[in-house]
Simulated assay, not measured.
Amino acid sequence: MKRKPFIVFTTLVVFIVLVLLVSLQSGTFQMTPAEAFKTIIGQGSDQQELVLFEFRLPRMVLAILIGAGLAVSGAILQSLSRNDLADPGILGINAGAGFAVVLFIYLFQGSYQNLGGSVYILPMFAFLGALTAAALIYSLAYKNGITPVRLVLVGIGINAGFSALLIIMQLRMSPNDFMQATVWLSGNIWGANWSSVLAILPWIAILIPLVIRQANTLNVMRIGDESAVGVGISLERSRLLLLFLAVALAGASVAAGGAIAFLGLVAPHIARRIVGPRHQIMIPTAALIGSLILLFADYIARNMLAPSEIPVGIVVAIIGAPYFLYLLIKTP
């Protein structure tokens, strides 16, 4: 590994660990750094262990996994569309996943939380919803090939359509389920537990390495379709495979953390500026940056209005929206 990527990876990991340690000791139930350390090595009180290991640590780990998944999904979509404004939230993939999860909540009307294995079923529902949205986008945008502008415009239309369906579905819900769906759609990882972590972990741990294996294909496709065909890449098959991986990552992340927008847009951009466009380095960097941003955003969401919390998706939107406008102005 070259020196600069190694330094970047090490720095990001150190920042993630620092934010993780600060987050673990902060909140309504305060701990000193010494108390947090003692609890981690098994010398804390029962109350401290309960707060740290059953409430805070699963939430932190879940934020790291969701951030990585959304960031890598965004990196794939930006390379496939050759459009730096592409993002699973903007293209409507998150909205499709969100609609599927809200449909799941509606079908079981208050009993879904008691349904055995529901936390493992949700990622599959979200994946199917995201896959439906992606299939609609791809089929409607395809016209003698896929153009970046057409892909984004169709994606925005699909996003609007699923958002309308979401509103209709929410209006048919019971008040309790309506509030649950509304908070979840704002981007929320409150109430995370180790079951939630185990539900998303295989998706992230398996799919991101598969994406990295396709890094050379992404490098060539980022340049243009002619270059990809010229080096012998099966264009449509590779595009469908990569789109499938992006959809699966986005769907699993949305199922675990709700519709968190702009993270898949911002993280790949920052990674590209730091380490360059080569996907072998850029994708792992984007994953680490996505994890860091979401972990920090969750820390702010928990502590800004303590003891009350705000959805982490709102904090990410506050961070990401100005950057999106900046990119929109800069893009010719």
Rank of each mutant, 00 (worst) to 15 (best):
L171E: 03
S174A: 15
G145Q: 06
V19E: 11
V17Q: 06
F127M: 13
E49A: 11
I158T: 08
F9R: 05
L288Q: 04
D84W: 03
L165I: 13
E49I: 04
V275T: 11
V152C: 05
D177K: 00
I137D: 01
N219Q: 13
L21H: 07
I200W: 05
S186P: 11
Q214G: 08
T11H: 02
I274E: 05
L201Y: 03
I64R: 05
L241N: 02
N83K: 12
Y138L: 15
P58S: 10
M1T: 08
T147D: 11
L91H: 05
I283S: 08
I310H: 05
Y120T: 01
V149C: 00
A160R: 06
L210F: 11
L131S: 05
L210E: 00
L107V: 08
A95L: 01
V22Y: 12
L128M: 08
L21Y: 14
S196L: 02
A86M: 04
L131Y: 06
A86P: 02
V101E: 03
L140T: 10
P148S: 00
I64W: 07
I76G: 07
L136S: 03
I16S: 07
G27W: 09
G191R: 13
S79Q: 02
Y120V: 01
K330M: 14
A181N: 06
V72W: 00
Q113N: 07
L166G: 09
I223S: 12
R237P: 01
G98D: 10
T132S: 15
Y299R: 00
I158D: 02
Y299Q: 07
I300W: 06
R172Q: 13
V229T: 12
L305G: 06
L327Q: 14
L140M: 13
G276M: 12
G96P: 02
A261Y: 03
A133I: 08
A215N: 06
L294S: 08
R59Y: 09
P148Y: 01
I93T: 00
R172H: 03
P58A: 12
A215I: 10
G42E: 04
H279I: 04
A160E: 02
L91P: 00
L21S: 12
I270V: 15
G224Q: 11
D84H: 12
P277E: 14
T39G: 14
R272I: 07
A267C: 08
K330C: 09
I260H: 14
L305F: 15
S79R: 02
Q78W: 12
L136Y: 00
G110Y: 12
I223N: 05
V154I: 15
A160S: 14
P322S: 07
Q180C: 01
A317L: 08
A192I: 10
N94C: 09
F162I: 06
I329K: 14
A255Y: 00
Q48R: 12
E35F: 04
I156Q: 06
